[in-house]
Design a protein around this nucleic acid. Structure first.
Length: 575
DNA sequence: GCCGTTTTCGGCCCGACTGTTTTCAGTCG
């Protein structure tokens, strides 16, 4: 979609203007970029509908940016941007990933040393050409080298599911310290974003020094410590990411939590609201003149500026503040609302655990049911089940369910499968075999690079199959690895609504598919969803929380998600 | 460059840290 390409260009124009010390314009371009990035309608469609006039109705887009959008749609290029790139021919996007590198430094390094990209930056730093430049020094050079290593190692961001176990362990250890009164994660972890840059933790204490000492000495797996002061410190853990701890005064804990939780965009909006009420909001509190009027809790802070507390997952300035003002905040699905996991692979298709083991885990998690959904025969490599094996598996499930009944366990195993949607939209297994299952998941596992029109048709045809109840990982992306398939999501939603097909939110940390924007669109279209883990080993059933977070970030409520219902209610959603 | 229940002109969110300086620029969140 042109929106994303244009957003990227406008972000870069903003950075390039900043490198030239231009005032305020960078902010304008950035604003336009943010809006475009989250805009649901394709700018191309907006333009075709109403020309430049319609473009100017997009918030943050005025005369000049509208013209640039028009130019891009017509010619695929923006002369103003091309000129900028000629003037400063560097890969700014790549260079800015290095911590401590900003547009100004990048420009100087190009002018003095000809640095154009990560490679030439590394060469310049390694040959000690940077340290002697005015405004730079030994330390800067060293930081650049470390920054480059960091970018290379991690691409700068980590999957939430990768860092969360470590974060939970560290928070757990800190909680043991008597000197700590309040403790919370903040930042993107608190907002449960898909990927995390670094981890922020906030605490209050009567003895901040002791807390910092404990943090820098006793946390497991520390490889580096820096920024150590009386109330703060940063560590890097062996998993490769950074954790900042700040000890703040009790009276500012709420405002600090609000501030450090963000998002940045959410904070900008809340500060502006504060200003309209004659108040100033920062990480220390809410102030009228020099008088502090709130700060102890987030509730106090938001109340002071006339808002209710919003769930961290939706603090993105994508309408939550307006919803809060109107008293129309969604009642997001809760982390304990799920009653069963319907996408679990067993030993039958090469998963790690038996059906019985998976069922035991599900019971321990407090679920009322579990759905076994092994791959079907097209996926040889995953030991896909054919009609006969499905039939034998059914017998095993029947016997287990019978046993649970005699043991008075209120728990049921459902038999499903994860069938393959073939390139022509057909399903790789006979309809009468599918009809005998409790439900059928279908997903695309081959030929993922089909053109948009064909891929959309393919999935819609599968949804029209009277046995297909759920579409698994509907967009096929792998975060940081593979893009989504090309699909017309609006048409998919329409077909899902018409056929009563459920869309899955896959909780696997590198999938999280549907993504937040798609979930929000599905909810608005009245399409039901299911949150599953796509478990291949019983421990992975714990990924459920990431799927729930994803649903919350997409504003989903309990009633939008079918596996919040008891089994009888759940079964009603299946065709 | 954008925008308007204080404005069609004059403002744009805000504070802290780092590394370089000797009062500050650049970057970050």
């Amino acid at each position: 979609m042109a929106n994303q390409e244009l957003a990227k260009i406008f972000y870069e124009i903003a950075d390039r203007l900043a490198s030239e010390d231009v005032e305020f314009k960078p902010y304008a371009y950035q604003r336009a970029a943010v809006t475009l990035e989250t805009l649901e309608e394709d700018v191309k469609e907006i333009y075709e509908r109403g020309g430049e006039r319609a473009l100017k109705e997009i918030p943050g887009v005025g005369e000049s940016i509208a013209q640039k959008i028009e130019e891009y749609l017509k010619t695929g290029k923006i002369k103003y941007y091309e000129k900028m790139k000629k003037k400063l021919p560097i890969n700014l996007e790549e260079l800015l990933k290095v911590e401590g590198m900003g547009p100004r430094k990048a420009k100087v390094l190009y002018q003095k040393l000809g640095v154009r990209d990560l490679k030439s930056l590394e060469r310049a730093a390694k040959t000690h050409k940077i340290a002697s430049l005015p405004g730079f020094g030994e330390k800067t050079e060293k930081n650049i080298l470390e920054g480059i290593a960091f970018v290379k190692r991690s691409k700068g961001r980590f999957l939430l599911g990768y860092i969360m176990p470590t974060v939970e362990e560290i928070v757990g250890r800190l909680r043991e310290l008597r000197e700590i009164q309040n403790l919370s994660v903040a930042g993107s972890v608190k907002r449960m974003q898909e990927t995390i840059g670094d981890v922020d933790i906030l605490a209050t204490s009567k003895d901040p020094k002791k807390v910092i000492e404990f943090f820098t000495a006793k946390m497991p797996g520390i490889v580096k410590i820096w920024g150590k002061g009386p109330t703060k410190a940063s560590i890097r853990v062996k998993e490769g990411f950074d954790i900042d701890l700040r000890v703040v005064p009790e009276k500012s804990y709420g405002s600090a939590l609000q501030y450090f939780t963000g998002s940045k965009e959410h904070n900008i909006k809340t500060r502006k609201i504060a200003i309209t009420k004659g108040l100033k909001l920062n990480e220390y509190g809410v102030f009228r003149g020099s008088k502090m009027v709130a700060g102890k809790t987030e509730e106090d802070v938001y109340r002071a500026i006339g808002l209710p507390v919003m769930p961290p997952e939706i603090r993105t300035d994508e309408g939550e503040i307006e919803a809060a003002m109107a008293g129309k905040l969604p009642h997001l699905i809760g982390y304990s609302d799920i009653k069963g996991d319907l996408h679990c692979h067993s030993k039958w298709d090469g998963g790690l655990n038996s059906i019985e083991e998976l069922a035991e885990s599900a019971m321990q998690m407090g679920y009322e049911y579990i759905g076994i959904s092994d791959h079907t025969k097209f996926l040889h490599i995953e030991h896909g089940l054919d009609e006969k094996k499905l039939s034998r598996q059914r017998k095993e499930i029947y016997e287990l369910n019978a046993r649970f009944k005699t043991q008075n366990k209120k728990f049921r195993i459902l038999q499903g499968c994860e069938a393959n949607i073939m390139p022509d939209g057909s399903i790789d297994i006979a309809d009468d075999a599918l009809a005998k299952l409790d439900y059928v998941i279908a997903g695309v596992h081959s030929q993922m690079k089909m053109p948009k029109e064909k891929m959309t048709e393919r999935i819609i045809k599968a949804m029209k199959n009277p046995n297909v109840d759920i579409i698994s990982h509907p967009t096929g992306r792998l975060i940081q690895k593979r893009d989504e398939y090309q699909i017309d999501f609006e048409r998919i939603l329409k077909a899902a609504k018409e056929t009563g097909t459920i869309l899955e939110i896959d909780s696997f940390p590198d999938r999280l598919d549907l993504k937040d924007a798609n979930i929000r669109a599905a909810k608005e279209a009245g399409v039901k969803m299911v949150i599953n883990t796509d478990t291949h080993a019983k421990d992975q059933m714990n990924f459920m929380k990431y799927g729930i977070a994803q649903a919350r970030r997409g504003w989903a409520e309990k009633e939008d998600i079918i596996n919040t219902r008891p089994v009888e209610g759940l079964l009603k959603f299946f065709k």
